[in-house]
Design a binder for these strands. Sequence first.
DNA 1: GGAATTGTCAAGTGAATACTTCAGTATTGG
DNA 2: CCAATACTGAAGTATTCACTTGACAATTCC
Lengths: 111, 111
Amino acid sequence: MRNRPVDIDRLFHALGDPTRRAILDGLVDRPQSVSQLAQPLGITVTAVMQHLEILEAARLAHTEKLGRVRTCRVEAAGFRALEQWIRDHRTAWERKLDRLGQLLAEEDEIR
Amino acid sequence: MRNRPVDIDRLFHALGDPTRRAILDGLVDRPQSVSQLAQPLGITVTAVMQHLEILEAARLAHTEKLGRVRTCRVEAAGFRALEQWIRDHRTAWERKLDRLGQLLAEEDEIR
DNA sequence: GGAATTGTCAAGTGAATACTTCAGTATTGG
DNA sequence: CCAATACTGAAGTATTCACTTGACAATTCC
């Protein structure tokens, strides 16, 4: 169960942390170095590195070291895998929900 | 930062656990009782209950007790919130990725 | 070359997680 | 009514997690 295809477990786990989502949001604006990412988050460079490993494993980010600076960018693969998962499950859910009919209506007015 | 709207943190956290995704997959087939869910998973009823609380908080499931049986169903609200999050972020990402141009192409042939 | 910058490594800490067990409490069928 | 069924609640445990500290290593700038 390792990472040839994007692992959905890694993906959800990666996105489950607010700091990591913040890192991604930062990277969407522009590629950034590790310390550039760390500063506004108020956490250590080491912590950012640890998050980056997780984001890379989930293929949500990609990093590359040139000289003493590691440049980090957002990567599309993980995101696409997430979309695919959603698509697959939505169709499955909708199929079943339609079959059950009133269940959907019942859920529409939330609790 | 609590749950009036579906909380994206809860959502990702809820979906980050394989057992919980398995529970949802089971519920998609048909509504089930807590013990019906527990049996094929090989975990205790108590453990399932704990997962259900998390799934309910994320609005991915809804449960209701009638007599001594608690019936669990899949709920659409959480799932819709996830789709919305994806939609929002995809457009943001695509905008930026397009602006960067070659970055996308680069990422297409994975690592 | 030496100091500042930028990142890496190893280890540790406290809190959160996913479970369990065990002792209840309702509910229901015979 | 009594026993089985179905869940609830409190507590405990082992692991994982996010993060830190502190000691390095590599690069770059003056």
